[in-house]
Design a protein around this nucleic acid. Sequence first.
DNA 1: CTAGTGACCAAGG
DNA 2: CCCTTGGCCACTA
Length: 108
Amino acid sequence: MSSEGFFEQVYKVAKQIPHGRITSYGAIAKYLGQAGSARMVGWAMNASGKQENVPAHRVVNRNGLLTGKHHFEGTNLMQQLLESEGIEIIENQIQNFEALFWDPMKEL
DNA sequence: CTAGTGACCAAGG
DNA sequence: CCCTTGGCCACTA
């Protein structure tokens, strides 16, 4: 409620991610019109701690790799959350990533 | 205003 | 296959 503009948009999209699905930073960035600035999306996720309903665990890099898992509490928290939604993960790598991929540009 | 940083992406050596 | 470089832009000190 102060300096929140870009972040708010990211949170909004993240909350729209269907259960059991995932997306990438670049996809969100592109949807927000900041294509190429996927970093900002990740940065927003970093601040996602301010929000509560922001499933940052549903957002991974372009390779389907849980790059941001290090920012979560535990070491396997992110993976557990995803597995809890029916997503299979091996070595921080999402299996069947393409099938589980959720593109905001396509779905929205 | 300046400088530093960052959970990315893509290309090149 | 691994590392470096460039780009891009918002946030913080």
